[in-house]
Simulated assay, not measured.
Amino acid sequence: MITTAPRGAKIIVLVLIASLVAACGLPRGGPSKRQIFSGSVLEQGDAFIVSVNDRVTRATGIVPALGFSEELINAAPVGADTIRPGDTLGLTIYENVEDGLLASAGQNASVINEVQVDGAGFIFVPYAGRIRAAGNSPNRLREIITERLDAQTPDPQVVVRRLAGDGATVSVLGNVGAQGVYPIERSNRMLTSMLATAGGVSAVPEIAQVTLVRGNATEKVWLLDLYKQPRLDIALRNDDRILVEEDSRSFTALGATGAQSRLAFESQTLSAIEAIAQVGGLNSSLADPTGVFVFRNEPEFIARQVLDRDDLIGTQRFAYVLDLTEPNGVFIARDFVVRDGDTVYVTEAPFVTWSKTISSLTGSLGNVGAVSQLVEGG
């Protein structure tokens, strides 16, 4: 005679077996929500577990502050006619006599081509001597040379012209159409016009950054801000270096998402919702929408604001929790800013663990009847 165990006993045995299998370590994509919470400072762990709300989003909503200093913004464009060290000039000197100082026999004009402005800003003109050219316009230099020659030859007439090979240049590098060294001319004295001279920007505009190096100073601005805020379209100076590159910030997505990988930011600001969408959203068959975590190391001043404490010293580990099932959960996730180096992790739903347990016992999901037969002994 075969006796059968009561149904309640079967269920108890089934649960015990499932618990035993689960305790042995079922395969999963990462820690469970319970395991993450066990690492809280409240459980003698080393991370602060913080549920995200409006106050937390405000305290942590920091994005890179890019922009030019007032010194760069207020600098006036360099005059296109201003002579600089390295410029090449052409001089024509007319003399009001048949046998002049400079002109050949039978002529009253002398042409001096390719007069190089030296590094100190000076040129040499026969009979006029060493003259400072840098900082003067061609017209002013003409007046100076005329004054110098006037004592040597009667009523000299001088023409000064700038030749090709402007000494004021800018280097343009990075994601542009044509990298190179470009002269500063009337048509490209401003930053955006110089970028156009270099063939335009080839980086994705939404994440393109423009770095300007002037002397020992390095400043950076978003490309789109150059067009949204005309005051950032600064005047260029000799030896400026311009670098165009895409934003290098990134985050890592793990767990029950559409993909597990390291991804670059696709916009200036990236919310938790956008980060999840960027990896294909939550895996509908695995994800626990109440267990969306953002792991990061917070600097001391932000950690103090978030926890409203003044006794924290140094960088702190944080695990921010987002519950997308709450009435305002999606809005909170939309406002929570993901930062460079963050890890976005989505836990598996409890049902997934249970299904894996049953599968490991029966060989097929949901085949509880097979387990009942084991319990009944037949």
Rank of each mutant, 00 (worst) to 15 (best):
A370V: 06
Q373N: 08
N328K: 13
V56Y: 05
D54H: 10
I49C: 02
V111Q: 12
F68E: 04
S271Y: 08
V338I: 15
V63D: 12
N74H: 14
V213T: 13
T218S: 07
S32H: 01
S355K: 15
S250N: 10
L236H: 08
V294F: 01
R186N: 05
G30A: 02
Q305S: 13
V115A: 12
V375L: 06
A256G: 07
T252K: 11
G378I: 15
G90T: 06
V172M: 01
L322T: 01
R249L: 11
N74D: 15
A168R: 07
A59C: 04
D54Y: 13
L101E: 08
E43P: 06
A133N: 03
A272F: 10
I11V: 14
S372Q: 13
S193T: 15
V170N: 06
E71S: 12
G25Q: 02
A333T: 01
R84S: 11
I242C: 09
I242A: 01
N367V: 03
D81R: 10
S19A: 15
D166T: 14
L91F: 14
I131T: 00
A109Q: 15
D310M: 14
Y94T: 14
A105S: 11
V50N: 08
Q316N: 05
L14Y: 08
L102E: 08
D46I: 09
E70C: 09
Q107P: 02
R7Q: 13
D150R: 15
L141T: 07
G199N: 00
V56Q: 03
T146V: 09
R162I: 01
T325D: 05
G79W: 04
L191H: 08
S171H: 10
G378S: 13
Q35K: 01
G255R: 11
V160A: 00
G291V: 04
V375N: 00
T3W: 11
D225Y: 10
P230I: 02
S285Q: 11
V78Q: 06
D118V: 01
R339K: 08
